[in-house]
């Protein structure tokens, strides 16, 4: 009877202990990846290959979404701003929203679903087909050989992708605002340049994208490495990567924004 009553409590305790254990495992895994990244950098061609897979192959989706997000911002911003007779501020609106928020965040979300899921599935399948175990047998460290290059490839690609997203988004805003609607060309750029600060806005955006890159790829490689070696396990891990890293990006974005733009 007592045992029956205590079961829910035991279930809660089991879950908490499990999640804390998993968090500790993930942190140790992350630390090991960082510690062994010297070996990964020694074979830079491996990192190059991963930059190709997670960076170059994400180019299309990043550029197309950036262009369209910028164009939509141009249209919507113009609709609202013209009510107050300040269409010239369109450049400021488009560039600030892209550089500060949308560039890093949307690029990171796309990166998580395009590259993060691929990394998880690849590592998970390697584990399921016992390639990782085989490497260990051959005294090749899987963390230095498989995890490290994928992690650094993602971390190096992410800021570049976010910068491209913002740049092409500003161009999209320009296309709609200036070319299509007819906002004054000079006012568009000069207001933008007067109000976008290099350190406060652009550099903070780059810092954000680096943090998101670390978060997304760290989650992706960990979920892949930790996936149960079955078909179901790999598919579950892939889903978890996308969900967890999207949530992590949004949560981190709020924290970073609170620190960066508090007094402005």
């Amino acid at each position: 009877m007592l045992d029956h009553l205590l079961r829910p409590l035991r279930n809660i305790g089991h879950r908490v202990v499990n999640s804390i254990w998993r968090l500790g495992y993930a942190s140790r895994f992350f630390l090991m990846t960082l510690l062994k990244s010297g070996t990964s950098f020694a074979r830079f061609s491996l990192i190059m290959r991963e930059i190709y897979f997670s960076g170059v192959l994400s180019l299309i989706i990043i550029l197309v979404s950036g262009l369209f997000v910028g164009m939509v911002l141009g249209l919507q911003g113009y609709e609202t701003l013209q009510k107050y007779g300040s269409e010239e501020a369109l450049g400021t609106l488009v560039s600030l929203s892209l550089v500060r928020e949308l560039g890093p965040v949307v690029a990171a979300l796309l990166f998580a679903s395009r590259a993060g899921s691929a990394i998880t599935a690849e590592i998970g399948l390697m584990k399921a087909t016992e390639q990782i175990a085989a490497m260990e047998m051959m005294a090749v460290d899987p963390i230095a050989r498989i995890i490290g290059p994928r992690f650094w490839g993602g971390v190096l690609s992410m800021p570049l992708l976010a910068a491209m997203f913002s740049a092409i988004g500003v161009f999209g805003g320009y296309l709609v605002g200036v070319v299509l609607i007819g906002v004054d060309d000079g006012a568009f750029w000069s207001q933008m340049q007067a109000n976008v600060d290099f350190r406060n806005d652009i550099l903070n955006g780059v810092i954000k994208s680096v943090v998101f890159g670390v978060a997304v790829t760290a989650i992706a490689v960990f979920e892949g490495y930790d996936a149960p070696p079955t078909a179901e396990g790999v598919s579950g891990a892939t889903t978890r990567t996308v969900v967890m890293s999207s949530l992590a990006v949004l949560g981190l974005d709020f924290i970073l924004t609170a620190f960066m733009f508090r007094g402005m």
Binding site: M48, I51, V56, L160, I168, M192, Q193, I202
Partner: peptide
Amino acid sequence: LDLWVGIFVVIGIAALLTLAMKVGNLST
């Protein structure tokens, strides 16, 4: 592969520079 990664990195850095010079006020 090297060529593609090179193109990717050059475009990325060009985007950053565009943001700094054209969008931001670093040049002015």
